[in-house]
């Protein structure tokens, strides 16, 4: 695992679940980036608080899995990290979320800029109704890349990183809807990678796919974590165990109270020796 000493130290030293914001990252920002620090994060839809008191670190260039029963706010928490919740009216985010030490909810931050650094892959493949090429070129073009050869290079690289290049290199003009579901999802990954993000958020990216496509996506994720920080929401325990380095377990114990973070830690430990009884019952399948 490629992880700078600074972060490794911060991640390993801080007690999981009650992490302090890690100021040391600021100093190291030039070498490594794409690490989140969440301090007392809460989310409210109107008057109803749905998530409260989340403290955790998201280490750079590693895979962090968010697990928990459906309706526990995993996706909502994920969407806080690129401020996609801003697009739904009536959502308030409390606490502090920093990306490499930068408070992403402060006034001067434009969420549009943030999203160029923090990409997202959605639950269902959602390619744009246009050619493969134009799909992947969308992000770079948004950033102002106009030169054809420059675009070509970015697109080739992104498609290679998403393990789709060999299958489509001769069909870049093809309409995205002609691809299979698994190919479409890898296209969406390539599309997100083409903006050169530091973090990639994945919201159950394989839940709509067949086992073979799921396998391909998981392989892709394993390759990608050398380049970007990945936060993945999944309801699939085996998947979390297979692909993630760190796992966070969220739970909403009743509809009257908000969801909270039960436990966060190294995946291997979480799945073999969890601290919390509820984590154990969830992982071993007693509820969910």
């Amino acid at each position: 695992m490629v992880m700078s000493a600074v972060v490794e130290e911060a991640v390993m030293d801080a007690p999981y679940g009650v992490a302090e914001p890690v100021r040391t990252i600021e100093h190291a920002a030039e070498e490594i980036n794409g690490s989140f620090s969440l301090t007392d994060v809460s989310v409210a839809y109107g008057a109803e608080t749905v998530i409260a008191g989340v403290n955790m670190l998201v280490p750079t260039r590693a895979v962090t899995a968010l697990i928990g029963p459906s309706g526990c706010g995993k996706s909502t928490l994920l969407r806080c990290l690129n401020r996609m919740n801003d697009e739904i009216g009536n959502v308030r985010v409390g606490g502090t979320i920093t990306l490499d030490g930068l408070d992403i909810y402060q006034k001067s931050i434009d969420p549009v800029d943030l999203r160029m650094r923090v990409g997202q892959v959605f639950q269902r493949p959602n390619p744009f109704p246009m050619s493969l090429y134009d799909n992947v070129a969308f992000g770079p073009r948004t950033q102002g890349v106009r030169k054809r050869d420059e675009l070509d290079a970015i697109i080739e690289e992104a498609l290679k990183d998403a393990a789709l290049w060999d299958e489509v290199k001769n069909h870049l003009k093809k309409h995205a809807f002609e691809l299979s579901g698994g190919q479409q999802q890898r296209l969406c990954i390539a599309r997100a990678l083409a903006t050169k993000p530091e973090v990639l958020l994945m919201d159950e990216p394989a839940s709509a796919l067949d086992p073979i496509s799921t396998q391909q996506i998981e392989d892709t994720i394993a390759e990608l974590k050398n380049m970007v920080t990945i936060v993945i929401v999944t309801h699939n325990m085996q998947q979390a165990a297979r692909i993630s380095d760190q796992t966070a377990f969220m739970l909403r114990e009743s509809m009257d109270q908000p969801a909270h973070l039960v436990e966060v830690g190294e995946t291997k430990r979480m799945f073999t020796n969890p601290d919390d009884r509820r984590t154990e019952s969830y992982i071993t399948g007693r509820f969910g």
């Binding site: 160029m116 997202q120 903006t195």
Partner: peptide, 22 residues
């Protein structure tokens, strides 16, 4: 469907660019 709007926004497009281009 709204998920392609979301996809465009998540790529760092402004609201108008998402509408105009996608």
């Amino acid at each position: 469907p709204s998920d392609i709007r979301q996809a465009a926004l998540a790529l760092g497009a402004t609201r108008w660019r998402a509408i105009y281009k996608v």
